[in-house]
Design a protein around this nucleic acid. Sequence first.
DNA 1: GTTTTAATTGCCGTTTAGTGCATATTTATA
DNA 2: TATAAATATGCACTAAACGGCAATTAAAAC
Lengths: 249, 249
Amino acid sequence: MLKEERQNIILEEIVNNNKVHSNTLSKKLNVSEDTIRRDLKELSEIGHIKKVHGGAMANPTVPAAIISQKISDQKEHLIIAQKALSSLVDHKVIIMEGDESNLILASILPPDFSATIFTNSLKVATRLFEFPNIETFMLGGKISHRSPITSGLEVMDALADIHADICLLEATSLHVDIGLTDGDRERAQIKKKIINHSSNVIAMCLSRRTGSIKPFKVEGLEKITSLITELNEDDAQLSSFINKGIRIV
Amino acid sequence: MLKEERQNIILEEIVNNNKVHSNTLSKKLNVSEDTIRRDLKELSEIGHIKKVHGGAMANPTVPAAIISQKISDQKEHLIIAQKALSSLVDHKVIIMEGDESNLILASILPPDFSATIFTNSLKVATRLFEFPNIETFMLGGKISHRSPITSGLEVMDALADIHADICLLEATSLHVDIGLTDGDRERAQIKKKIINHSSNVIAMCLSRRTGSIKPFKVEGLEKITSLITELNEDDAQLSSFINKGIRIV
DNA sequence: GTTTTAATTGCCGTTTAGTGCATATTTATA
DNA sequence: TATAAATATGCACTAAACGGCAATTAAAAC
């Protein structure tokens, strides 16, 4: 059995029973307790479950749907989120757009992290609620039927009055020549506005999404300060971005 | 059983009964009283409960996040939510304020329910996201550290442009003479504004919260169209409200 | 298809966490 | 104040966690 398969089973069990025991899992999956322990450690690093003595439990604030997402996707976002975290400093104004890498990022922030954070994601906002030193602002608006994210005029209006030190964008498409594009018109507009109201622009993009082009233009590459993918900085796939002067993290 | 699991059970029991005894817990959970005592010590160090001789009691300053998990109240909220549901009709504009009964209500809506719903609760909005025929609008703003609810100027501004057919308010205090009051100033203002932007005002209130008065006035009883509690309409406790002309559901 | 490389896993010795028990001390209250 | 119950403390035992290492297995490169 593959590790990934096993970890998905573990997540499934946590969603169903709210908890797992290392020793029973070990027997059930025919691996040593050490392996289970390593699995639980990895899974808990993503932030949706909590490792405890003897097993693991679901994080009470995380909905089942999030926990049971395929582990392979979560891991890629975790790598991105970890890099993003190292780019953040305390006491700044941050805009977090979207709910993929940003959700994981919100899960791995140090408990005493201090900042003012704006977000259009219900999931991210719910997560940030737990942090006593973070001032969270939900950007209000109509909730899309595609993902639990606000968009529309209200978000645009709210952004008009904001300036952030740094914004963290989920890039669904990033092309070396065309720049940042999006499949949703409203979301493209929102991203554009966020970029123009932030001193630093960090695009978080899965490597398989680089190179693609979506119908709605956000901004050209020159507006992007840094690009974070799950790849190493020196990966050949990213050299064209480096040539354009983008900082790779 | 995992330690955390056991402590969750203890917390739950304290939240429900306001107190626990070490010796009964010891029998119930099949561990020594020493272990229970250590659990209570740990929980009290975190600050959620207060250790007393012979057991522990609920801490008066328990964070809202924990209170909201009250199991016993869930039943009462369900009764309220069911009544509220019967008051709703399709294709209306609804404001749902707060996340107790409204969250349950959002969970029991028929899957094809059609409406435009505004809410200041992250939980409610997240739940409503699942409904294909509901247009959900999240009222943006600063997220309170007490519960995952937006408040502040942005909410007020957003409300200014809205008129609803019906609003569903979580009433934390409802007094026959004083009317609706709230313990939080901003939230009181928001409720007031919601009331004045709705054709029908439904107050959802646990019976034990009727009669109490909180520091910040929302509106007098005359602004309330209907009152929903978990009690029967003809319960004696509610007669004083009937005398004031409130419709009891 | 084979070789090379990297990831995964199990094992082992050591360390730590959790639990129960014995005993001394404190607390509630009759 | 007497007395029974509850608590604190120290100790011992067990199960789990940790870190390093070697063997195995999967993935990548050739």
